[in-house]
Amino acid sequence: MHSSVISAVLLGSLSLLPTVSSTDATTYAPDDPSGATLAGSMVTTDCESDAPWISFDVVLTGGTVEEATAPVSLILDNGVNTATVPLGSLQDYRLSGRVLWPGASVDDAGRGTGWPGWEFRDGTWTAMDAGFAWTRGDIAATLRVNPDLAVPVAYPASTPDCATSPNGVRDAAVAALPATGGSASGPIALAVAAVGAFVAGALLVLQRRRHRRA
């Protein structure tokens, strides 16, 4: 009889213990963030053969196997307009190369033939608001893979050796460069002129003295 009572008490106690359903056990999954990052990725711009280029070096760290070959884009935005520039796809978590700036074009030799915000019309280049002209202003840029990364990007400025506008139509700052560069020869020209004037004056004085003695 005592054993029957003990068994009953044990069974009753076991029935009060919490149970774990098979459903709860199979659906539970701990947080496992991938921690993927684009830290170390870089985007730069430059002018070559009168054409604006975007160079990039994208590195994905901590990504999944599927992300190792993910497509990469550069998003340009000025708060009103947005342009997506495809850069290609990662190869083993990395991608590097360069692409033309949106709205730019080159010939077979790689020399610039078109620029954002300019149109060749009636034999002359005309500035316009279309044709990605807004990308030459104040913009924000984002590398998009998964995750994203904000990067500093700006339209490359023209230089005396490379124009990022139609030939002969340069930025105001660059248009002033020939004068600024020429200023270095200005003092030299003045000095030569001064020496010439001095020599001419000295010869004139000697000539007059000789004339008086004669």
Rank of each mutant, 00 (worst) to 15 (best):
S105R: 01
T180V: 04
T180S: 10
R121N: 06
G182N: 11
P187C: 03
G181D: 12
D122N: 15
V195I: 15
A130P: 00
A163P: 01
P166Y: 05
G103E: 04
D161M: 08
D138K: 00
A141M: 02
G112F: 11
A194C: 08
G201V: 10
A172S: 11
R111Q: 12
A173C: 03
N167A: 12
A130G: 02
R121D: 05
W115L: 12
V169W: 06
N167I: 15
A130C: 02
V205M: 06
P178Y: 12
W101A: 10
L204S: 15
W115D: 15
I139R: 00
A154K: 00
G182R: 02
T180N: 12
A193V: 08
S185W: 07
L143Q: 05
A154N: 00
V151K: 15
D108R: 14
W134H: 02
L143H: 03
W118P: 13
R144M: 14
T135G: 02
V153T: 09
G110W: 15
G182W: 03
D107T: 10
P156I: 14
P152W: 14
L177M: 11
A104C: 14
R111H: 15
A197Q: 08
G182C: 11
F198I: 13
A140C: 02
N146K: 09
P152E: 10
L190V: 02
R98Y: 09
M128S: 03
Y155W: 09
